[in-house]
Design a protein around this nucleic acid. Structure first.
Lengths: 344, 344
DNA sequence: TTGTAGGCGTTATCAT
DNA sequence: ATGATAACGCCTACAA
């Protein structure tokens, strides 16, 4: 495996100084057109590739970011892969590379990703958290290192987090129902200790307040985590059995919505005539196209892209205002009616 | 974000030359015990981390390998994640890092991973192929670069490939049946244009020959790819309807075995009393523990680990004999009887 | 055992 | 517009 071409070799052939070669290759205006052309030609002929280690050494950066994961297995989830694709897209755009910096079980040191910064292997870290993590990354993250957390939560103004705009998702969902004339809007949620549920509900409640609708806690149903579809179904029965049942149900996950559909169907009701229903997010199979009901859509690709772009801006010392960023969600309205027979 | 400690700083504090520091940090015997101790102490206090760019520049290696994937989405599959875990394990063992070098749709240049070698960002490439690829990596791989292909096929003696030992899997499976007294052993396979099917069948047939059993082509049933379980079921019906049906069925995938179970159950037969059955590999959910029948087990973690270790050996110019390597498979015998009621 | 000097391949800062 | 020289942080002959 032969040694690579260097600027010195090119310089020798072109009969110029290597600094001229460097300038030519870096598109400096301080170089004669003819000279530049000649140099570029030689570089192409010799298949010159700049040594990124030498470059990084003098520029004090590796142009590589570390992807920090609690475990590689997270990548099995479509959500994480889509986030990763967004990250990759931003990396391609800005010429960065991606290093896997997962906290594998085999590594004793939990500071591994940060050590990678210290030894100049990576310039910064994208910390991909699980939405189901409770403490965000506060305990694992060393301040003063360039780190952006995806799905993370923090109260530290020095730590950057990018999330789906869960609050806005709650607002959009509630507003949609209100515009359709509903005032008894139920919510199917998971455990509120998870930030994203809390935020969605916060958004929903803010809309109620704005519309002078009293919050009825009977309309807020908590599902268990083990069998979300089942618990969505059971919660829906409870809602339908209320003395004054809701006219609309806002299911805060795909699975809860599936359960709700099941219950509504079993009761012989129709969506949206008898009761209106909205889902949230998409499922693992990403088959949102076939999901029959109106839904709040999240864009994991955008989440990854935005986060990565933020990190790169931080690395390039761009002015950043704020430390918490939110990726917009959108409403996907499904006009079709859901009749009982559809679900037989 | 402060500048990192360098050996020069340590040298100044320790009142020695920086080359002495370098020697001390690299465990050179050419340094006094006392001096070394002092230097190590200062290094710890100052949180010294060697600059890997400077190190790589002089050592001509980055100690990073590129993980080459056709697309990131491959990682959704448990098989690939397990391979990746094996790779990571070897990387941790040998102090290497993993760079994602996927051929994303956004990149025009298909030579991207090889360019990463040329610019010294990575030392070599682990090319993770799909078992369902037809041409291996022959068209994408530049000879004379350190590349090891996982699941790849090649006839080029200069290219390294590591695979599950599919041939041996066929041998083990057939031998197991023969030891149990079977001589009419059917095979459920997918399309033989895929190398791994071809190899498994080759192993199976070699055992028949050794045992003087004539190969009956009626006992070789091909399934279609779209609905493997269904086609496994249909193939099994065909087998059971033969004038002289087989006494054992060797299903070359998990899905084909599932279909076979279904057919056997429907016909009111029992495993292994009425007919013997063996599966191959494990399914995406990796729930092999619960898979009820005797199976040829593959170890994707070992595949990843072995491949990565091979690549690192190549990088360190170890003597390598051969270019094709096989990761052993093993037989997992399930003793329990499968009765009809189990599957109701 | 330690110090000196040179080099890895770039880029940056001088000067010309 | 170009050249000479130093510097990035580390390693390694060679000299002492």
């Amino acid at each position: 495996m032969k040694i690579n071409t260097t600027i010195s070799e090119i310089a020798k052939i072109a009969k110029v100084n290597k600094s001229t070669v460097s300038r030519a290759l870096n598109n400096s205006p301080l170089v004669n057109g003819e000279t530049k052309k000649k140099i570029m030609e030689i570089a192409r002929d010799l298949q010159y590739f700049p040594n990124s280690l030498a470059r990084g050494l003098i520029n004090r950066k590796s142009e590589t970011i570390g992807i920090m994961l609690l475990e590689l297995s997270s990548l099995k989830k479509t959500l994480f892969i889509d986030i990763l694709k967004g990250i990759e897209s931003a990396c391609v755009k800005y010429g960065y590379n991606m290093l896997i910096a997962s906290l594998s079980e085999q590594r004793e040191e939990r500071t591994f990703p940060f050590n990678l910064i210290k030894c100049n292997r990576i310039d910064g870290i994208l910390n991909i958290c699980s939405p189901y993590s409770l403490n965000g990354f506060s305990n694992s993250c060393i301040v003063d290192h360039p780190v952006v957390s995806i799905n993370g939560i923090t109260k530290d103004k020095n730590k950057y987090c990018v999330n789906f705009d869960n609050y806005e998702g709650g607002v959009i969902g509630a507003n949609y129902f209100i515009k359709r004339g509903h005032s008894r809007i139920a919510v199917l949620t998971g455990n509120q200790m998870f930030n994203f549920f809390k935020e969605r509900i916060r958004g929903y409640r803010s809309v109620l307040i704005k519309n002078n609708i009293l919050f009825d806690k009977n309309l807020l149903q908590f599902g268990c985590f083990e069998d979300e579809i089942k618990s969505g179904e059971l919660s829906t029965y409870r809602l339908l059995d209320l003395p004054v049942p809701p006219t609309a149900i806002f299911a805060l996950t795909y699975e809860l919505a599936m359960g709700a559909i099941k219950a509504i169907k079993r009761r012989g009701l129709e969506i949206p005539n008898d009761i209106d229903l909205m889902g949230y997010g998409c499922n693992e199979l990403n088959n949102i196209q076939h999901f029959p009901i109106t839904t709040i859509l999240q864009n994991p690709f955008a989440l990854g892209f935005t986060s990565c772009e933020l990190l790169i801006n931080i690395l390039n010392r761009k002015e950043i205002t704020g430390n918490l960023f939110y990726v917009p969600v959108e409403l996907m309205v499904k006009a079709m009616r859901i009749k009982k027979k559809v679900y037989v």
